[in-house]
Amino acid sequence: MTTAVLDAPAASAAQSVAARMKPVSRSADTLFRWLCLGMAVGVLALVVLVGWQLWSGAQSAIHKFGVGFLTRSAWDPVQGEFGALPFIYGTLVSSLLGLAIATPLAVGTAIFLTELAPNWLRQPIAFLTEMLAAIPSVILGLWAIFIMLPLLPRYLFPFLKKTLGFLPLFQGPTYSAYSMIAAAIIIAIMILPIITSVSREILRSVPDLQREAAYGLGATRWEVTRIAVLSYAKKGIFGAMILGLGRALGETMAVTMVIGNTPKIAASLFQPGYTLASVIANEFAEATTDDYRNALIAVGLVLFGVTVVINLLARLLLKFGNTQTGAVH
């Protein structure tokens, strides 16, 4: 992508024109330019603002609890004990599980949209997946509480116990539908659109020559997709996954509504859990003491740090994957 900046001769011409203009117009020019610059710098300032606010807010918690904040599992605001481990665990497990559910579906859809579907069907389906992204999180949560949750103990849990029951993840009692699994399913639904959409872009950037060459060798449709397209787009699709993970970690409302909000680390996925985002959502408004609030801000700092790193990583992967495919054109 290139910016639409004027090239050197045009810019110098603009300057000489500016020199001959009426003073009013010239000062308006300068004013407008500085105004725009201010806004652009404002965006950078916003990055600093977020980082600084979270950092300074979390300072006292960092001093008080040190690294132990991340490794202790007790969360008892009444006793003044704050350990973020259950939330880190809950966030990681629910996000990774959601990613595991969403990735095959999203990549399959992306393949369908770029390689298989008839032309007239591509835009409508792509549009529908983008509309899925437009559903507000809280509405998905409402739907999940009243429609999805009652179905889980009846159909999904017994099925999982029967087929995967030998794993400790799928053992133990299933008291309630509020569980890690419910959160993972909701997260999967929420990150499907972004993984689909980005994978689709990646697949579309694979040059047609690749496909034609594979067809020319007598490959079947799937072989073309596997050999010529997917192996080419591997890195990009991985980038799309990481991007999806970044979104998954920060999903708040719908997850808060179904995960059960219990700060405990349980081996079973049928048990309720808690995530970094949902503990902030649930407890921040009621955090009465300074320690409590600062601990929650520190949780926010962890969340912010992790998502920034993940997003930068995804950006790097997508960019790297892209220059590689771009070189062939």
Binding site: L49, Q53, L54, G57, G250, A277, A281, L303, T307, V308
Partner: peptide, 10 residues
């Protein structure tokens, strides 16, 4: 990429 809940904190 910043989760919306973080904007609430800010």
């Amino acid at each position: 990429g910043v989760p919306s809940i973080v904007w609430g904190i800010v």
